[in-house]
């Protein structure tokens, strides 16, 4: 298996707080990783370092064989790393369709100054992606009019438009009503499967983790405390005590 993303000795501290503590980690092509952990365990920090938003104090990151340590997010994204956020990062003044169109135009590189946005992207691809995340009916509405669950979907869809090799989703189901969580995950996984995208998502819901992940990594105090098949990790003593609170 090829490592799609790999880190070596990745460390970052904010003052006295160690947010990433010497993390060696790898994710292979085709995996579907769920990251679990308490708030403040360093899950998002690790994503932020891997995607270039934060610079590590020590250690290196390789993405798809390239050393991307210290690069800006926009450069790493160009290598094929897509990301969605815990708080969806949308263009709230644009329509749902325009959000996807801007993504598609960005993927092509140089932005046109005179060609209308809608004409400079593949219309069928946009409609297909809207369909894939069940947002077709709302395509002409402002992104700011969407409820939280659909904002999450649009956020992921914008990252998907870049045709990434890896998609990192930070808490895709947070803020979504519990009865809608499974629908949302099923929709997302369908979209990811169709494009054969390797994925990594942060999730608190054990049900969702065991149902959708092929591998689970548990974060405790800036470290990967357990990493392996879902059943194994969810049953480990440290995870049960520190994260699930069931031991």
């Amino acid at each position: 298996m090829d490592a799609l993303i790999r880190t070596e000795g990745l460390s970052l501290s904010f003052g006295g707080v160690v947010a990433a503590d010497n993390i060696d980690f790898r994710l292979d092509v085709g995996e579907r990783l769920a990251v679990i952990g308490q708030n403040g365990a360093g899950k998002t920090t690790f994503i932020n370092i891997c995607t270039g938003f934060l610079k590590p104090t020590r250690g290196r990151v390789w993405f798809d064989g390239k050393d991307v340590t210290g690069m800006e997010p926009r450069h790493i994204v160009r290598f094929g790393l897509g990301r969605s956020f815990q708080l969806p990062q949308l263009f709230l003044d644009h329509t749902v369709r325009q959000c996807l169109e801007i993504s598609a135009a960005a993927r092509q590189g140089r932005l046109s100054f005179f060609k209308p946005l809608a004409q400079s992207v593949n219309r069928r691809e946009i409609e297909h992606t809207l369909e894939l995340v069940s947002l077709r009916e709302r395509g002409s509405e402002l992104a700011s009019s969407l409820p939280e669950g659909q904002r999450k979907l649009l956020d992921v869809a914008m990252a998907l438009m870049l045709n990434p090799k890896l998609l990192i989703m930070d808490e895709p189901t947070s803020g979504v009503a519990s009865e809608d969580k499974h629908d949302l995950m099923a929709t997302l996984m369908r979209a990811l499967d169709e494009r054969k995208v390797t994925s990594w998502f942060v999730e608190h819901d054990v049900d969702i983790v065991s149902r959708y992940a092929t591998r689970v990594a548990a974060w405790i105090a800036g470290k990967v405390a357990a990493d392996g098949p879902p059943a194994e990790v969810l049953a480990s003593a440290a995870v049960r005590r520190e994260i699930l609170g069931t031991a």
């Binding site: 994204v77 160009r78 990062q89 263009f91 870049l162």
Partner: peptide
């Protein structure tokens, strides 16, 4: 116009 609403997303689109 996206600069007004979300620069983070622009950067994460590779722009």
């Amino acid at each position: 116009a996206g600069i007004k609403t979300n620069e983070t997303r622009l950067e994460y689109l590779g722009l």
